[in-house]
Simulated assay, not measured.
Amino acid sequence: MWRDERGGSLVETALSFLLLSSLIFGVFEGALAVYSYHFLANAAHEATRYAIVRGGGWGSSCDGSGSTGSGFGSSGCVANATDVANYVASRNFPGLHLTAAQVCVKYLVSTPGSATTTCTASTTNTNNVPGDIVQVTINYPFTLSVPGVPSHTFTLSSTSQMAICQ
């Protein structure tokens, strides 16, 4: 019995192309996730650095309202949790659109036993003095979307902590 196999290679090529393109786009999306995490970690580090040089040892409060000319570049002032969160939101990190609501700032009296505790942000500085610890956690929703696969959103999170020096 004779079977007509015309068009069989076209179907095989189409299926192979679909599988290969999904694999390539999956690699691109994975690279984008790593890229986003890198800049998220950088944002947490920069926010912590911003907070440690603006500790409670200064006399005046920072104007971290986020408005133009609000003084994010100034030092010699006391930054609270809201100022730090607005600082992160005002930065233009490539590919990330961070908001102040995604930033959690904690002031701790000593080095915490666990940096993974639930973050309850406070806008008051109860421990914002030199020698204390500031901990900044940023949570960022990342959507993984690969053609042919249902998209999935997961949270990238980065935490940075340093001792307040001024």
Rank of each mutant, 00 (worst) to 15 (best):
W2F: 13
R3P: 10
D4N: 14
D4K: 13
G8R: 15
S9M: 14
L10G: 04
L10N: 07
V11K: 10
V11A: 11
V11Y: 04
T13K: 06
A14I: 05
L15M: 14
L15A: 12
L15S: 07
S16H: 04
S16W: 03
L18M: 15
L20V: 13
L20F: 15
S22H: 06
S22Q: 07
L23I: 11
L23F: 12
I24P: 01
I24L: 15
F25R: 08
F25N: 11
G26N: 04
V27C: 09
F28E: 06
E29G: 02
E29D: 08
G30M: 15
A31E: 02
L32Y: 14
L32P: 00
A33S: 14
A33M: 15
Y35L: 04
Y37Q: 14
H38G: 11
H38A: 10
F39P: 00
A41K: 04
A41M: 02
A43M: 11
T48K: 00
T48N: 03
Y50K: 06
Y50H: 09
A51M: 00
I52Y: 05
V53H: 00
R54S: 02
R54A: 03
R54L: 01
G56W: 06
G56S: 08
G56T: 08
G56Q: 07
G59Y: 03
G59V: 03
S61E: 05
S61Y: 08
C62M: 01
C62G: 07
C62T: 09
D63P: 08
G64W: 08
S67H: 04
T68M: 04
T68H: 03
G69A: 12
S70A: 15
G71H: 09
F72M: 09
G73F: 06
S74F: 09
S74Y: 08
S75E: 03
A79T: 00
A79L: 00
A81L: 06
A81Y: 07
A81N: 11
D83V: 09
D83W: 07
D83F: 10
D83T: 10
V84C: 02
V84D: 01
A85L: 03
N86P: 06
Y87N: 01
N92C: 04
F93W: 08
P94H: 08
G95Q: 04
G95R: 11
L96A: 10
H97N: 13
L98E: 07
T99G: 14
A101W: 05
Q102L: 10
V103H: 10
V105D: 01
Y107W: 05
L108N: 04
V109A: 12
G113L: 14
G113W: 12
A115K: 09
T117P: 02
T117S: 14
T118L: 09
C119W: 07
T120H: 10
T120L: 05
A121G: 13
A121Q: 12
S122L: 14
S122E: 13
T123D: 11
N127L: 04
N127Y: 12
V129N: 02
P130Y: 02
G131V: 08
D132L: 00
Q135D: 04
V136Y: 02
T137W: 03
I138S: 05
N139L: 13
Y140G: 09
P141E: 09
T143W: 14
L144W: 15
L144T: 15
S145C: 05
S145V: 12
V149D: 06
V149Q: 10
P150F: 14
P150V: 15
S151C: 08
H152S: 15
H152W: 15
T153Y: 11
T153R: 11
F154W: 15
T155H: 10
T159V: 07
I164Y: 00
I164N: 01
Q166M: 07
